[in-house]
Nucleic acid binder design. Structure first.
Lengths: 232, 232
DNA sequence: CGCATACTTGACGTCATTCAAACCGTGTGG
DNA sequence: CCACACGGTTTGAATGACGTCAAGTATGCG
């Protein structure tokens, strides 16, 4: 299937937004739209000659597996996010759809050509890469020094942020995009601990759980205080 | 002081290695060489309009501080490494010299111009950024799921790797570039735990400590097995 | 020599994990 | 319709790893 940039929901926020219309047109001809169902894999660790992609809608997780097969989620990808290790001969992590997702995919050759042809695209990807780096370092910071409660509060705060339409105010109600097990994997905790801490956060009045996945933010300031993050 | 690319020890491995001689020459005219003594700070978190730099010799740490002032080391920078958040209006982390260091620094304006003028440089920085991202994710993986012993073993293995001249075989003897406190900060542990675990690794015959900082790798395979990393 | 800084070692407490059991919503087959 | 199995989740009790507090040991430097 060919790309339909004209109706693309991330046409103004994805990396390709920096291109001129005719450049974008040309790039679109080398790309393909792809749909993934929840749980489907885009790349597997070890794949050779992997492509890369921009996420149009849905959500992905990037995860690694240690020798015992335990999963560790390293990052989430939201719409307009870019995935792909253009400079490595093989993928080092799995990329899996958390929900039904739509992507623009590009072959290795095509993206290399595009980097040659469109310096502005390269700069946009550099910027994105640095933002990813920054996000990963924030996660590292949390994981290394925070308590279970701290980490969970930060994760909830991030989800509220991501679920919000406005860029600076968090949503006050949202659905968790991850199972307890996936949250535990992200935070380096166990399912049981996540479950218990969610209960504690509810007891102290910071959140309210509705159903298995619904979260209502009763006291976002408290969560943010717990998470120890600076306000931007 | 002006740059002396001709005698630069990282002239073939730093990002600027991709430039043509005359391009490099031009870039050099906008850069400045800077020397830092152990403990001196290059950037502080919150600095505005920060520059960026390539490390020529020595070693740096990139670290964050939580609200209580606890330091968390997020990354180490080795020679040929690039430092700088070109797209953020202010620095989010401290950058401090671990040993006496030499750098090539570039002002914000100059590097922006260089990104415009030299697409190859932008690509080189993109590559480097992705490598940094990968390294940070590896650290995240360790920190989230590994035990204290596991993490320390991985750190020692990395140091042995970095201290080696050959790119694939680790050195069998090296000096720790970090104090116990700095190692603890990196790994999200305490000084005491690091000290204890080093003792245990020595007892089990994996390493031998000589003096405060000297490490002899008696059983690198064992350390690597502990660290749980794939062999590249 | 005396003080400072880095490191080591021990006793004890805390928090997250582990193991185990029960719970709940959903789908399946009798 | 009910029984039942199954995945995701919750909850409890016991264990253990790492942190905390507190002393004690080098090593170096004025």
């Amino acid at each position: 299937m060919n790309l339909a940039c004209a109706t693309c929901p991330v046409r103004d926020s994805a990396a390709c937004a920096v291109l001129e219309p005719e450049e974008r047109e040309a790039l679109a001809r080398s790309g393909r739209t792809r749909h993934l169902k929840r749980g489907e894999m885009l790349f597997a660790a070890g794949d050779q000659q992997t492509a890369c992609a921009t996420l149009v809608s849905g959500a992905l997780k990037i995860s690694a597996h240690d020798i015992d097969g335990n999963e560790q989620i390293l990052a989430l990808v939201h719409p307009a996010g870019f995935i792909g290790e253009m400079f490595s001969p093989f993928a080092s992590h799995d990329v899996v759809a958390l929900t039904d997702s739509t992507l623009c995919t590009f072959g290795r050759k095509d993206i290399e050509q595009a980097l040659e042809d469109y310096p502005a695209l390269t700069r946009a990807l550099l910027r994105r890469s640095q933002e990813d780096l920054h996000a990963t370092r924030s996660m590292l910071e949390m994981t290394a020094h925070g308590s279970a409660e701290t980490r969970l509060a930060a994760l909830l705060h991030d989800f509220a942020q991501a679920a919000s339409t406005s860029p600076c105010h968090p949503a006050d109600r949202f659905e968790l995009p991850l199972t307890r097990g996936e949250m535990a994997n992200m935070l380096g905790l166990t399912i049981e601990t996540v479950s218990r801490k969610l209960g504690e956060l509810e007891e102290m009045g910071a959140i309210k759980r509705t159903g298995k996945r619904g979260i209502e933010m009763l006291d976002p300031a408290h969560l943010q205080a717990l998470s120890g993050r600076e306000v931007l």
